[in-house]
Every structure is written in structure tokens, then in C-alpha cells.
Nucleic acid binder design. Structure first.
Lengths: 243, 243
DNA sequence: AAAGGCATCTAACATCGTTAGGGGGATCGG
DNA sequence: CCGATCCCCCTAACGATGTTAGATGCCTTT
């Protein structure tokens, strides 16, 4: 049987399975992922997977961790080449957090199908903890107390994931096998405009604003709002005194 | 009224299917929903469903809309029974939005299983549009311009859904068949504390803040941050310029 | 009474997750 | 060198799933 995929019968690792699962998920979507296909992808029979893995669930957990494999966080704040304690140094927490949020979004966005399945699963592996540690470090040195830093981290994480989840769904459920993205938004807008102007005056009037703006600007809007909302919580420099 | 359950063949409606699907989804979770079970629930053979519905997908779309059946939005701002049209009345947009956000959360939370499957599907039916119209109306009369109101609506919606999605997942993936919630958080906290204090100094130090606070306060934290971030966008009273 | 559509049925297919039990090849103790 | 042991994979099968095809009866209209 010449079905050796990688090295001839070198043995399959759990990482192989996770990678294969991720690959299939991304290529064929949620229903394209079956044990048999994962097995075929790594060059074995379906039942053989159960030697490495107890469940399909466990396989998904593995994939969930592998999702973060190639996500390279910016180095935590403590390794910042600039001044470690400089008052100006703690003010750039905004761009730092923003950059992390944007990277998180694009990371999930380029793995839409996988993210859709894996979001809300959250077996936080070491790679995810790295992100968390980095973010919290940034926030604390920026002047947030521990509790606020933890809550803000959670807030950012949940928002980005919720955002991507929406963003990655075809705007109209019926358009999944349909038109180009620009056509889809135009169509969505038209649908909104054709609603009852009596019952939905604002929705109709703002149809262009609701269906119109591209997701990038929408994301930036939300991000700016979050950062603005967090800002007043910072203890500027030492316990009291302002700047 | 006509709640004949499965008396002979009284005829099945699409609403019946959606309700049955929602019921099964909530009772048995995602994998408890099969065509055959939905059919049995309404007293019919599996194949008969395909007369009412093209796909399982379409059934889920139906259920997605039915999810909002018993969500009663607070009346839009214009029908506020208390202060009719006081100029200070536009300042209570915060509690209005907050109330809507909290209701949205609890609504999704009491339908966790269904929400998990249906989130990100979003065939926005009329009921969802009602919510949207109400929210946008509130924001606009509070002084937000159209574009900001639309973006803020999107922001709030995505955040609440992302939040609930996280909230409704068992804190540790392994604990789904395990302990009580309080035990789970205690265990999660202990797990965080046992991490390498070298690699994750902040995570370890704040283990209590990360795993500790209950979700209600976390939600309120995020909500307050969002509202704070939106506040400066309001055009306060002075009609200096539109757009 | 005949016709026709509506709503459901039975039967079957391919595919899915998962289990049971068997076997071949490497490694190690003697 | 031999056998034992473990690792890793195999074939075969079970029940459940989504979905289709074709037949059957009920209800309404003619």
C-alpha cells in the first residue's frame, strides 16, 4: 500500500492529528471534518485514531490548542526596548493592546472555519496563556490594578471572538453559496431598505450604515470604544497625582 | 387552544418544528438534535420533515428565529411611559441600553445550548429587527449620529454574544461532566496558581482575579466600559452640526 | 364519484463516531 | 538467538445520522 503520506510508517503523533484536523476544517468547513478523513489525511485507518485520542472531542481540543501554534505575540511589555519605567512608556499601552487585538482578529479570520468550531471550547493551552500573560503585563504596567487588568483581558478576548464570529458568517444565511462580498452587502442593504418604514424607521433610514461599512472600520470603532472605556481606570503613575 | 399534541395527524407547522428543535437543543445539547428526534417530538417520521423543510440547515434557521420568540424588548424610547419628552430624558440612555444588554445576556444564557449552536448563524428575523430598531432609536435620541448608533449596536451585539459564548462553556473543558460551578472555579484558580511563576508571573499572581469573579460582575465591568467608551460620541444637546 | 394535491409513510443509501479483536514489527531480557 | 512485551495499526462491524425515492392515504374540489 503506497499510501504513506509523511515518512513511511514513522508513526503518527497527536500534533499530526491536530494539524490534519485544522487543515480539513479550514478547507471543507465544519462538516468536512470526520474521523475517517483525518485518518486518511495522516495516512492511517479511521479506527487507528482512537489509539492516540479518546474521542473526537479530544481531537478537537488538540486542534483548539494547535490553532494558536503560529500566533506570535509581541514580546511582553517587560522586554520593551524603551524605558522600563518611563512615564511615557506606560502611555503606549493603547497601541500595544490594539495591535494584539488586531492580530487576534486576523488570526481568527484567516482560520474562519476552524475558529467557528473551536470558539467557545477553550482548553487554554500554554500558547494562549502566553497571550494572556503578555496582555496583563502590558495593562498592569500601564497602571491598571490586577482586577481591572484581568477583567479587561476577558473583555477584550470575548469581544474579539464575538466580533469575528459575526464577521465570518455570511451576511445573509442564504448567500453562503452566492455572491461576492460586495454584492452581498449591497443586497443586505437593499433588504433593509425594503423593510416597513413604519415599523423600522431607524433601520431603514440607516440601512447604509448598518449594512454598509466594511468590517475593518467597524472593528476599529469597537476597539477605540473599548480602549476609551478602559482609560479612566488607569492609576496614572503612583497612587494619586495626575501626570 | 389548539395544542393537540400528537393526536393522530393534525398537521405539523414549521413553527412546530422550530419549537421542537429548540426544545431538544436545550434539553440534550447540540448532538441531541437529530432529524429523527425532531420528527418524533412532533409525532411524525423523520422523512416527513423534508416536506416542510429543505435541509437541516433550514430547520436551524427556523429555530434561530424562534429563539427570539419570547424576548420582549423594552418599549422603544419614544413610547417611554415615564418622562415623556424631557430634555434631560436623553440622558437615561445608559440604563436603557444596559437593561437591553442584560436581558439579551440572560435570554441567551437560559438557552445556552441553543445559543451555542445558533450564534453566528444570524438570519435576522423580524423579532431581531425589533430589538435593533429599539436600540438604534434609543441611541439616536440620546444624541448619537446614525453611523455611530449603527456601529454601537453592532458593538454591543457582538460583545454580548461573545461574552455569553464564553460564559456558557464549562470553565475547564475537562469539567463538563464534573463538579459544581464553585468547585470548578476553585479548581481553575488552583490550576492557574500552579503554573510556572517564572513564565507567567502575572497570571499566577492574579489567579484569583482571573478565575475568581463571578460572571455577573464581569459582565457589568464590560458593559460599563462599553458605555463609557460610547459616551464621548454623543452630541450633547447643542445642535451645532449634523454629519 | 373522480381527481388532485397535500401530508405522511416505508425503505433504503452513504456516511458518521465508535468498539472489538487481531496482527505485525520493534525493543528488551535472557 | 528466542520469546515476551509493548506500540501502533489493521479489518469488521454496530448503531445512528442526513437525505432521497416512491408509495399511500386524507381532504378538498370538481
Amino acid at each position: 500500500m503506497g499510501t504513506r503520506h509523511k515518512t513511511a510508517h514513522a508513526g503518527v503523533t497527536r500534533e499530526d492529528l491536530a494539524d490534519a484536523a485544522l487543515r480539513l476544517l479550514e478547507r471543507d468547513g465544519a462538516k468536512g471534518l470526520s474521523m475517517r478523513k483525518v485518518a486518511a489525511e495522516v495516512g492511517v485507518q479511521a479506527a487507528s485514531l482512537y489509539w492516540h485520542v479518546r474521542d473526537k472531542e479530544e481531537l478537537l481540543d488538540l486542534a483548539c490548542d494547535a490553532l494558536w501554534a503560529d500566533f506570535d505575540a509581541p514580546p511582553p511589555h517587560t522586554t520593551d526596548p524603551a524605558g522600563p519605567h518611563s512615564p511615557g512608556g506606560t502611555d503606549d499601552w493603547r497601541p500595544q493592546v490594539a495591535v494584539l487585538a488586531r492580530r487576534l482578529r486576523t488570526h481568527l479570520l484567516t482560520r474562519t472555519n476552524a475558529a467557528r468550531v473551536l470558539v467557545g471550547r477553550f482548553a487554554p493551552g500554554p500558547r494562549w496563556l502566553d497571550r494572556m500573560e503578555s496582555l496583563i503585563a502590558t495593562l498592569r504596567t500601564a497602571g491598571f490594578d490586577g482586577r481591572d487588568a484581568a477583567d479587561a483581558t476577558y473583555l477584550l478576548g470575548t469581544w474579539v471572538q464575538g466580533f469575528v464570529l459575526h464577521e465570518s458568517v455570511p451576511m445573509s444565511a442564504a448567500e453562503q453559496r452566492g455572491a461576492s462580498p460586495s454584492e452581498a452587502t449591497a443586497l443586505a442593504r437593499r433588504e433593509l431598505e425594503e423593510l416597513s418604514g413604519e415599523r423600522y424607521p431607524n433601520v431603514v433610514a440607516l440601512a447604509g450604515d448598518i449594512a454598509g461599512p466594511d468590517m475593518d472600520t467597524r472593528f476599529e470603532f469597537g476597539l477605540a470604544r473599548l480602549l476609551d472605556g478602559l482609560e479612566p481606570l488607569r492609576a496614572t503613575a503612583t497612587p494619586k497625582q495626575a501626570e
